[in-house]
Design a binder for these strands. Structure first.
Lengths: 192, 192
DNA sequence: TATAAAATATACCGATCTGTATATAGAGTT
DNA sequence: AACTCTATATACAGATCGGTATATTTTATA
């Protein structure tokens, strides 16, 4: 298997460090040291730190959504069970059982949005886009389950997802995914 | 009315700037300039920037909870309506109609937790404590409404609250409070 | 082996960061 | 008028920040 390109080494290291220590707290020099890459190489591939941030978030988006959807759709569950498996996936994530070695530190995109207050920053667009894709995926699951008012229900379930993530991180409530699951079951039942 | 003490000037200015620009992005020097206070005065009242952050968050916690509870309990609503007024309060907040001049930039405590990854940092304890008090207040409303399984229901409603906040900020969905309200109504109805 | 591309080392820029040292000015009290 | 407390101005320390300039070395390919 081929070694990672210098560019990929940078993006991987940057993502790990941004996730671990935050975006503004993580300096360029630290990333270069940990990645074992020269500064000039970084600025060959990226015009600025912000561009590196965007690249790291793109990688996170790809990895996370792949893992998430793969888990939800595994085990040949029926459409109804699949919808509830969303919360089982969250439960694994919160308890560090998603990607190996990946310590849960909240949603990387929520964290990024918290650090980049300027709504016009490309980082913010990327965060919103990630959340939009996650909620659209959820909507698809609701449609497949044949439930009434799929748009409305999907938006409500999405709040449970986002609330569980926030609560798991800020309050350290590792059980919040199961709370969300119980609420989801009630909403789904009510929606026939 | 007496002018604010230098200490209070500092804390007020710091809170406004932390809220507007973030915690790590806001430097001591900028706060001093905007507050019109000398640097030595700051370090007379606070041992470090972190202590100023904590003081600013305490002020935010006090102000926000006061406003929130005052709104929920106004208009002599019955216990059931009061519970739903929680989401009306969120709706005002998201649409910049809570505290005058207060532009919505997500939950200050979620944002702080996003920037301070060390769980042992006093900032993190304060964020968790704020959320705990908010959820306990919610639990009280559920109990007053005489609903079944108040603990379980309150936790579920809390996820809707936190999800609405997150979604309103990250996705700019100014309508998320009403989505949360609809979900809350369904959960409450199901709980008899 | 010659050549082009990729990556490196090193030094530096100006700015900003948190925090400290020192010395001075103003206000109120005794 | 002497004293005390608060606040100020100014300068500075030491570190780190993002980013650039220059020149050299490694690597891959022709």
């Amino acid at each position: 298997m081929p070694a990672l390109s210098k560019r990929d080494q940078l993006v991987n290291t940057a993502l790990a460090m941004f996730t671990r220590d935050g975006f503004h707290s993580t300096g360029i020099n630290g990333i270069l040291e940990e990645a074992g890459v020269a500064k000039m190489t970084l600025y060959k591939y990226f015009k600025s730190k912000d561009e590196l941030v965007v690249a790291a978030l793109r990688l996170r988006d790809e990895r996370f959504r792949d893992w998430f959807m793969q888990y939800v759709e595994a085990d040949d569950a029926g459409p109804r069970e699949r919808l509830l498996r969303v919360f089982d996936a969250l439960n694994l994530w919160f308890n560090d059982k998603s990607v190996p070695g990946d310590k849960f530190r909240g949603c990387t995109f929520v964290n990024a949005a918290s650090e980049y207050h300027d709504i016009d920053n490309p980082v913010r667009s990327l965060c919103a886009e990630h959340k939009r894709m996650m909620s659209m995926y959820l909507r698809g699951l609701v449609v497949q389950a044949g439930l009434r008012n799929p748009d409305s229900l999907a938006q409500q379930l999405n709040l449970l997802v986002e609330g569980a993530i926030s609560n798991a991180y800020v309050c350290g409530d590792k059980n919040s995914a199961l709370t969300g699951k119980a609420a989801a079951e009630a909403l789904i039942k009510a929606a026939g």
